[in-house]
Design a protein around this nucleic acid. Structure first.
Length: 476
DNA sequence: ATGTCC
């Protein structure tokens, strides 16, 4: 888009002053190149978000922003319930609590090298991936309830994982305030055989090598050293989250008039935080968060089993688990006053800085790990939260490379088979049940993750700690 | 993202 539509506030900050029905400014963090390459729809969607009731400070877009359903993906917006603030299902996204977790393996790349194929086989065999993938776990009504209210904590109680995992998960593995009775029978039905599965699209399980360290002090505390092998899991709440999103979008769209909310775009459907529908969505969405936390916890267990068949006796400790599709009640300083706000992060990662009370002791000095997944065959990054991020975007950072091209366009332009061969030549093993899926995920269909992360770092949204390069990628 | 259209 045309950068002349913005006032450039500093090197990485571009502002649109409120006009028309906008209640607050819209702000995009980017450099001129990333901004030029962004779709005009990001501008339209972000300025639309800025019109919503009760929005506080500004509507923000992260450097990986691209157009999404209603809200842009890479969007951050906070709402004050005391000022008629709203919650929007489109502001969370269809894949509720989609997120990333990274595990230490204690291996280095030289130890892995001779066993790469064997490990790829084992992971592929053990972790179900792909559209409609099902697992070996089947949830009856009681176990479903336990999962929806207990998250990763429930998974742990069921025997999936280790007690020390919980401290290294957002919300300590269990999202409070989940109201399972607002999760429909159909959402439950879709999920009952899908626990411990990756799903499709940009979801993956990746074995990675620590390729570069930017901050040795923080990297050491995060347990990352050059040539260490780590495993990263990227997935969310599968069919259940999608069903919750679908149902509430519809209900919110139908009741907008009743709440006298004027929507510039039907896709921005929302409900007041203090309304019955708003509260109902929050309860169901939090159950969706628990589903995603439990799912990643079970996949972690399966990953540990798979790795143990190749490297017996190995221990996979959790670095951290972060979500990037949520709406969370958080306290932030607004005009010198502490306010309770509902922060929507859609394709944006929470990035609490040093000293934040919600962080476990191990991250109190460093800020939380901010895990940024790259696209297939490209690098991923580990960053750490900063204190200034709270003033910049309610303690948020980017979540990945961000799409630069639609799935349809990508599948026309590339062939899955060819991509797999090209990546194999670079020593990267891709395993996927869908070659079309691989084509849709072609590295060039995404923005340059390194450019995105550099901007996040320079904008102070989060600080670069380490770069990870893919070795094995199991894709949905 | 998604039993890639109930």
């Amino acid at each position: 888009m045309d950068t002349r539509q913005f006032i450039q506030r500093d090197e990485t900050c571009w502002e649109i002053k409120p006009y028309g029905n906008m209640r607050v400014p819209a702000i995009i963090y980017a450099d001129a190149q990333l901004l030029e390459d962004m779709d005009q729809k990001v501008y339209d969607q972000l300025t639309n978000v800025a019109t919503l009731p009760g929005i506080v400070e500004a509507a923000y877009a992260m450097p990986d922003a691209h157009w999404g359903y209603g809200f842009p993906i890479g969007g951050v917006a906070a709402f004050d319930p005391e000022q008629g603030g709203v919650v929007s299902a489109g502001g969370v996204g269809f894949d509720i609590s989609c997120g990333v977790r990274t595990l230490h393996t204690g291996l280095n790349i030289a130890e892995l090298q001779p066993h790469k194929q064997a490990l790829a086989d084992a992971l592929c065999r053990t972790v179900p991936a792909g559209v409609g993938s099902r697992g070996k776990i089947h949830l009856n009504h009681d176990r479903m309830h336990g999962m929806l209210t207990g998250g990763a904590k429930w998974a742990l109680e069921q025997g999936y994982g280790e007690a020390q995992d919980l401290d290294r998960i957002e919300e300590h593995g269990c999202m409070a305030g989940a109201e399972a009775h607002y999760v429909s029978p159909r959402a439950r039905e879709r999920q009952k055989d899908e626990m411990g599965t990756l799903g499709s699209g940009n979801h993956y399980l990746e074995v990675q090598r620590v390729a570069e360290i930017f901050d040795p002090v923080v990297a050491k505390i995060f347990g990352l050293h050059i040539d260490d092998v780590v495993i990263t899991i990227h997935c969310g709440s599968r069919g259940l989250g999608h069903q919750i999103g679908t149902e509430f979008l519809k209900e919110m769209a139908m009741s907008a008039a009743q709440y006298r909310i004027v929507l510039p775009d039907r896709e921005l459907a929302c409900a007041p935080l203090n309304s019955p529908l708003g509260k109902k969505y929050l309860g169901a969405m939090r159950a969706g968060i628990n589903c995603a936390l439990a799912n990643r916890q079970i996949i972690t267990h399966l990953t540990r089993q798979a790795v143990a068949t190749v490297f017996p006796g190995i221990h996979l400790g959790l670095l951290y688990d972060v979500s990037h599709n949520t709406c969370k009640l958080e306290h932030h300083m607004i005009d010198g006053q502490k306010k309770a706000l509902y922060v929507h992060r859609k394709g944006a990662t929470r990035a609490f800085g040093p000293g934040h009370p919600d962080l476990p002791d191990v991250f109190k000095k460093t800020g939380q790990p901010v895990l940024i997944g790259g696209s297939m065959g490209t690098s991923s990054y580990v960053l750490c939260g900063t204190q200034e991020s709270e003033q910049r975007a309610f303690s948020s950072a980017c979540h990945g490379a961000g799409r630069a091209m639609s799935r349809t366009q990508a599948s026309k332009q590339w062939q899955g088979r060819t991509l797999v061969e090209e990546l194999a030549e670079r020593g990267i093993i891709i395993r996927s049940p869908s070659m079309r899926g691989v084509a849709e995920e072609a590295p060039s269909a995404y923005k340059d993750v390194s450019a995105v992360v550099d901007i996040a770092d320079r904008a102070g949204l989060a600080r670069k700690v380490a770069k990870l390069e893919p070795v094995i990628c199991v894709k949905g």
